[in-house]
Computed example of a mutant assay.
Amino acid sequence: MTVTVTIYDVAREAGVSMATVSRVVNNNPNVKPQTRKKVFEAIERLGYRPNAVARGLASKKTTTVGVVIPDISNSIFSEVARGIEDIANMYHYNIILCNADKRKEKEIRVINTLLEKQVDGLLFMGGAVTEEHIQAFKTSSVPIVLCATADENNTIPSVDIDHEKAAYDAVQVLIQNGHRSIAMISGSLQDPANGYARYQGYKKALEEAGIALSEDLVRVGNYRYESGSEATKYFLELPQRPSAIFAATDEMAIGAIHTLQDNGLRVPEDVSVISVDNIRMASMVRPTLTTVAQPMYDIGAVSMRLLTKLMNKETKEGDLTQVILPHEVIQRNSVAHV
């Protein structure tokens, strides 16, 4: 049976007061080096671990941040999470990462669970921010930052890219290469960022080029490989197949490329493909995928840094809390001139 070692045991072992042990554990500079050494030696001998819960109750801080991730299996979110964790470690915060499976009811439940655990701040990553989310956020007494998404009215601090402009720039690449029949594999139009905003960017680029929007050339996917493949099968059954496909995510674009190749078509000679994200697989697929890169690591890192400022009350009125990071077109080999 394991016996729990307490701060009292450490104090007795080191021959000091409990207050001195507490000062050492909390890195208080007002302790003599010799005394500090004695306390650390006692901690090591006894295998003492400070009680984070008790310390949190005393300081009213848990040094823990809750992170809601929409889909832990999606590589793009893992890159955001890496940026979050690196900055969290730099500022001595731990993170609790919760997967919400892109389901609104689970997202709300996870948000409430993390707030009940007395986290010092919350990062909500990706997905649509609905009125139900806003209501859950309003019950929070700690700062919240939206990461890789934003609410419709920009009332909550957020870090993201301009999704409409990213999609517009991708479609511009196709138009500049002579394409006029351009299909789109969209995300959910209920998703304001990856879905609706990217659809709006596609639509705007076509309108500016004088190309009529055809609903037959738009299919809604779920951001994953399989939905990109299914949408492409649909395009190939049209009386006149498109000369190019813009996919809202790289994963759907890779599904499109493989389906085109499975049907005996060459990419980009027969059909060009472009997308948004720049996941690692974009440079591994053949042909390599031309895409608009989101700075996913930076989105995570900047979100976490903004949250640390809010948690530590470092921000002043008028400080920028809606941050838009730049995107970049990465030219590879999946787009041809026609």
Rank of each mutant, 00 (worst) to 15 (best):
D120R: 09
L123C: 09
V129I: 12
E131R: 14
F137H: 03
S140G: 08
S141G: 09
V145H: 00
V145M: 02
V145A: 01
L146F: 06
L146Q: 04
T149D: 01
T149C: 06
E152G: 11
N153W: 02
I156W: 00
P157A: 07
P157R: 03
S158M: 06
S158I: 10
S158C: 12
D160S: 15
D162W: 11
A166N: 05
A167Q: 04
Y168I: 10
D169F: 11
Q172G: 13
I175Y: 06
N177K: 15
S181R: 15
A183F: 10
G187A: 03
S188G: 15
S188V: 12
L189G: 05
D191Y: 07
P192M: 11
G195T: 11
Y196D: 11
Y196K: 14
K203V: 09
E208R: 11
A209T: 14
A209R: 09
L213R: 08
E215R: 15
G221C: 05
Y223F: 15
Y223L: 13
E226W: 08
E230A: 10
T232E: 06
T232P: 05
K233H: 13
L236Q: 07
E237R: 14
P239M: 05
Q240C: 09
Q240T: 15
R241K: 15
A247D: 02
A248S: 10
A248N: 03
D250Q: 11
